[in-house]
Amino acid sequence: MARDTTVPRDQVEDVLDDWPDDPTAVAHTVMETYGAPNEATESRLIWFDNGPWKYSILYREGVSHEFPAQHTDYLEQAIDYAVDPDRYDDLGQFDGSVTVRRTRGELSAECHGEPANFLALNLAHDILAGEKTVGEARKAYTEIYARKEAGGRPEYVQGLKFDLPETDQRDPDEKTLTEEIKQEAEHQVH
């Protein structure tokens, strides 16, 4: 299916008929906000360029996660965002559901819903911008999450609190395979 077309709603519902209740509920919430997905398979629904997201992928099968409380991650949402490789460890220590894809220039979060993904990415940005340490971000995540679960609408869960870059964030890295190295390898093989 093309990125600019959507799956008919009845086909999406046919897919969701075989899904567990929790990801089905998330699917309906995402569809209320962004409309039908661009792709639907037995294992996932995918939206492209929906709202602030480069893409959103809803997985039928989630991953159990204990931070900040037990829940299951079903919804991955990505933005264009270059991360300095020297900062990857900070993000890994912050939240294992935040993922950097350096070559693609993407930063994503996978949680049980969009508000939690906004929360994770806003705090990841705070860490990368030097506004919070990893420990401060984890503490803030726990406190904000508790307010959200109690029925509050903290700013950090309502949307991205930072501007997305307008330039290409992809990192093709650097070419290291020179003609000299190729020739040396061929010489060693033969």
Rank of each mutant, 00 (worst) to 15 (best):
I144P: 01
Q183D: 13
R153P: 02
E131D: 01
R102A: 14
V100K: 05
A146S: 14
L121H: 00
L58H: 09
Y145G: 11
E66R: 15
A146G: 12
R104F: 12
F94K: 10
G135H: 01
L177N: 03
Q169D: 08
H112A: 15
L128P: 03
R170D: 08
D171R: 04
T6N: 13
N38P: 03
T133V: 08
R60L: 04
S108K: 08
V134F: 08
A150S: 14
E131I: 03
F94Y: 15
E39F: 13
D84G: 09
Y88L: 15
G62M: 01
Q183G: 02
G51D: 11
E13C: 07
I57S: 15
H65M: 02
P8A: 12
N122Y: 07
A124S: 12
W47V: 06
R87K: 12
A146H: 12
Q183R: 13
D95N: 14
E76T: 15
V12F: 02
F67N: 13
A109F: 10
E166V: 14
G152K: 04
A146R: 15
M31W: 09
S43C: 04
A78K: 13
Y141R: 05
R87Q: 14
Y59P: 05
K54M: 04
G130W: 05
E114W: 01
H125L: 07
V15E: 09
F162S: 03
D84S: 13
A120Q: 08
F67W: 13
N122Q: 06
F94S: 10
G62V: 00
L177M: 08
E143C: 00
V189M: 13
D14E: 14
V157A: 11
A137K: 02
F94G: 06
E76D: 15
Y74K: 09
E174D: 09
D14I: 00
N122H: 05
E184F: 02
P52F: 01
L121I: 02
V26G: 00
A137Y: 01
A25F: 03
Q158N: 12
L160W: 09
E136A: 05
G130E: 06
D21E: 12
K132N: 07
D49G: 07
S43Y: 01
A124Q: 01
L91N: 07
F48D: 10
V63F: 08
R44F: 10
P85N: 12
E42T: 07
A69K: 15
M1F: 02
P23G: 04
G105N: 03
A120F: 02
Y141Q: 03
Y59V: 04
G130M: 02
R9N: 12
A40S: 11
L160N: 08
Q188K: 11
D18G: 11
E184P: 03
A69F: 14
G151N: 07
T41M: 03
V63W: 01
L177E: 08
K132R: 14
V15T: 06
E136R: 05
P37H: 12
L123M: 00
R104H: 14
R102F: 12
A140K: 05
T6Q: 15
D95C: 11
H65N: 01
